[in-house]
């Protein structure tokens, strides 16, 4: 027994040694709220191209923003890549982001980046209503997102209020319609909606017919379609028109932290993210399904052409930093 034990201990020591050896020195630390698959795709390519290793800390956008605030000056993060602009606006408001090199903004339309030049837009996606094609017809779709809070929609709608993508929508309604209307809408949703943890859950529920419609960002449906194939897809997307708040465009952006000790490398990574090469990589990936913001790169053909979507008139500043969204969701009983 004893000798057997010592042999086991020997093997263990060997394994421990190899583990220690496997950890390599990283030079760029990325806090990412983007999907791991997308990020791995980008960082591997970046590493190959630049020779700079990237350590990734993945989390939900608001979580990472709060974490960066809590960590403050001693944060290990160099770059923050997130999926919704309000999180960047929060850090911008706290003065935690450093200026992006002007050249980086080059090909990205100005209104998709920070008003003060501290973060750059990378990708965008549209808020949509996914619907089950067997349960409901396109002509029955609501004219406005706010209609979904009305009694007629009871039991016919799914939402994911704790998904990072839902907060900007609440902020957008708040910005455009005021607090009273927003709260009324949310309370209506609480009565009407089935609640899920995230957009993946919503779109899957709609697709399998558990619920007729669901509020999601468009690319979740595209990913589901890729996973399930044409045969398994029993759902389609409805795009809100008339610049309704429901067609909100969420901008995914990136920034360099002021606390970064690797500003130069960090800026290189930012420039890479908006380069045609990276943007093309994402557009072709069959996993990201967001609109590349680089003017010269076409999105995946499964998406509605970028110039045909009709988002509400709402700039980044007006959309704000989601500071009231969580409180409103709690008040409405959705959190």
């Amino acid at each position: 027994m004893v000798s057997r034990f010592s042999r086991v201990a020997g093997i263990a020591a060997l394994l421990a040694a190899s583990f220690v050896g496997a950890a390599h020195a990283a030079t760029l630390t990325l806090y990412s709220a983007q999907h791991p698959q997308t990020v791995t795709l980008l960082t591997k390519d970046f590493e190959k191209q630049s020779g700079i290793a990237v350590r990734v800390h993945t989390g939900e956008g608001p979580q990472l923003a709060a974490q960066l605030v809590a960590e403050g000056q001693s944060s290990p993060a160099d770059v923050y890549l997130t999926s919704n602009s309000p999180e960047l606006m929060l850090l911008e408001g706290k003065g935690m982001l450093s200026k992006v090199q002007p050249a980086t903004f080059g090909e990205i339309p100005a209104h998709y980046s920070s008003p003060t030049g501290v973060w750059v837009g990378v990708m965008a996606r549209e808020n949509v209503l996914a619907y089950n094609t067997k349960m409901i017809k396109p002509e029955q779709m609501p004219a406005s997102l706010l209609d979904l809070g009305k009694p007629a929609w009871k039991g016919k709608i799914a939402i994911a209020p704790s998904d990072g993508d839902f907060l900007p929508l609440v902020s957008a309604v708040l910005a455009l319609k005021g607090e009273a209307a927003t709260l009324e809408w949310l309370k209506g949703l609480r009565t009407n909606a089935q609640i899920f943890d995230d957009n993946e859950g919503v779109v899957a529920a709609v697709n399998r017919g558990a619920v007729a419609t669901g509020i999601i960002n468009n690319y979740y449906w595209a990913r589901l379609h890729t996973e399930m194939g044409d045969k398994g897809t029993h759902s389609a997307l409805y795009h809100f028109g008339n610049a309704d708040v429901g067609a909100l465009l969420n901008v995914s952006g990136a920034a360099v932290l002021k606390s970064s000790k690797n500003a130069e490398v960090a800026n290189k990574f930012l420039a890479y993210l908006v380069s045609p090469r990276a943007q093309q990589l994402m557009a072709n990936s069959k996993v990201t399904y967001e609109y590349p913001l680089h003017a010269g790169v076409a999105p995946d053909p499964i998406l509605k052409p970028f110039n045909q979507i009709n988002p509400p008139q709402l700039d980044m500043q007006k959309l704000g930093d989601d500071s009231q969204a969580v409180a409103l969701l709690r008040k409405a009983g959705l959190l």
Partner: peptide
């Protein structure tokens, strides 16, 4: 979910 929305928040 709360952690994802607010890190180490009160909720």
């Amino acid at each position: 979910a709360e952690y994802r929305l607010s890190f180490d928040g009160s909720g």
